[in-house]
Deep mutational scan, measured.
Amino acid sequence: TQVHVDGVTYTFSNPEEAKKFADEMAKRKGGTWEIKDGHIHVE
């Protein structure tokens, strides 16, 4: 599962880990995350 944050791609083999990471990054940025085309995007 790929997580895209500010133009950087992080790859996780476990989708649950990817979601936890996205959640943390979104909180830090004061933003949100969503799943697009099977990838997670942090806004």
Rank of each mutant, 00 (worst) to 15 (best):
E16I: 10
E24M: 11
E24D: 10
E16R: 08
F21C: 11
G31S: 05
H41D: 05
A18H: 00
T32A: 08
K27R: 13
F21L: 01
I40Y: 13
K36A: 07
T1M: 14
K36I: 14
D23P: 00
R28A: 14
T9S: 08
P15H: 13
T11E: 08
R28L: 15
T32P: 03
G30E: 06
D37W: 05
E34V: 15
D6P: 01
G30P: 02
P15T: 12
Q2E: 10
M25G: 01
V42T: 02
I35Y: 13
E34R: 11
M25Q: 11
A22W: 01
G7F: 06
T9Y: 11
D6E: 08
I40M: 04
E34W: 15
A22R: 01
T32S: 13
A18C: 06
K19A: 11
K19G: 06
W33F: 05
F12Y: 04
D37T: 02
A22P: 00
H39Q: 12
E43A: 13
V3R: 00
I40T: 02
V5C: 13
G30K: 07
G31M: 07
G7S: 07
G38I: 03
K36Q: 08
E43R: 14
I35V: 10
G7Y: 05
V42F: 10
E24C: 15
Q2P: 07
G31L: 06
E16P: 04
H4S: 06
W33C: 11
M25N: 05
G30W: 02
T11L: 12
A26F: 03
A26G: 03
N14K: 08
F21R: 01
E24P: 00
A22G: 03
K36D: 05
E24R: 09
N14S: 11
M25K: 04
V5Q: 01
V8M: 13
W33G: 03
K20R: 12
F12S: 00
Q2S: 10
I35H: 06
D37A: 06
V3Q: 00
H39P: 02
K27M: 12
E43H: 15
V8N: 10
D6H: 06
D6W: 05
T1S: 06
K19S: 08
K27L: 13
F12R: 00
E43K: 14
R28T: 14
V5K: 01
P15N: 08
D23F: 07
K29Q: 11
T9L: 08
T11G: 06
H41A: 05
V42M: 06
A26R: 03
N14Y: 07
D23Y: 08
D37Y: 05
H41W: 15
D6G: 08
H41R: 07
G31A: 05
E17T: 10
S13C: 14
A26Y: 03
N14M: 08
K29D: 10
Y10T: 04
D23T: 13
T32Q: 09
P15E: 13
M25E: 14
T1C: 14
T11Y: 14
E24K: 09
P15M: 15
Y10W: 09
D37K: 02
E24S: 06
K36R: 13
G30S: 04
D23R: 10
G31H: 03
E34I: 14
H41Q: 07
E34N: 09
E43L: 15
H4K: 05
P15L: 15
M25P: 00
A22K: 01
E24W: 13
H39R: 05
A22Y: 02
P15D: 10
D23Q: 12
K36G: 04
E16G: 08
H4I: 09
E34P: 03
T1D: 03
H41L: 10
D23E: 13
G30M: 04
M25R: 04
S13Q: 11
P15V: 14
T1G: 03
Y10K: 03
A18M: 01
V8D: 09
E43D: 10
K20S: 11
S13A: 12
F21A: 03
H39A: 12
I40Q: 02
M25H: 06
K27C: 14
W33M: 06
E17W: 07
N14F: 07
H41G: 03
K29H: 15
G38A: 04
F21E: 00
E16S: 09
A26C: 13
H39F: 07
T9E: 06
E16C: 14
K29C: 15
T11D: 06
A26P: 01
H41I: 13
D23I: 14
H4L: 07
G38Y: 03
K20T: 11
H39K: 07
E17Y: 07
H39D: 09
G38R: 02
H41K: 06
H41M: 10
D6V: 03
F21D: 00
K20A: 13
T32D: 05
A26T: 08
V42S: 02
I40S: 01
D6Q: 06
V5Y: 07
V5M: 11
I35R: 03
K27H: 12
R28H: 13
A26M: 04
T1A: 06
A22T: 01
F12W: 03
S13W: 10
A26W: 03
T1N: 06
M25L: 08
V8W: 11
S13G: 10
V5G: 03
V3S: 00
K19F: 15
S13Y: 10
F21P: 00
N14Q: 08
T11Q: 08
K36E: 06
W33Y: 06
T9V: 14
R28N: 14
I40E: 02
D6L: 05
Q2M: 13
E24A: 10
P15F: 15
G30L: 05
K19L: 14
G38F: 04
Q2F: 13
G30Q: 05
K19Y: 14
H39C: 15
Q2Y: 14
Q2N: 11
K36S: 07
G38C: 09
P15Q: 12
R28K: 14
A26N: 03
S13M: 11
S13P: 10
Q2V: 12
K29M: 15
F12C: 09
K27A: 13
P15W: 15
K36T: 07
V8C: 15
Q2R: 11
M25A: 09
D6F: 07
T1P: 05
K36H: 12
T1H: 08
I35D: 06
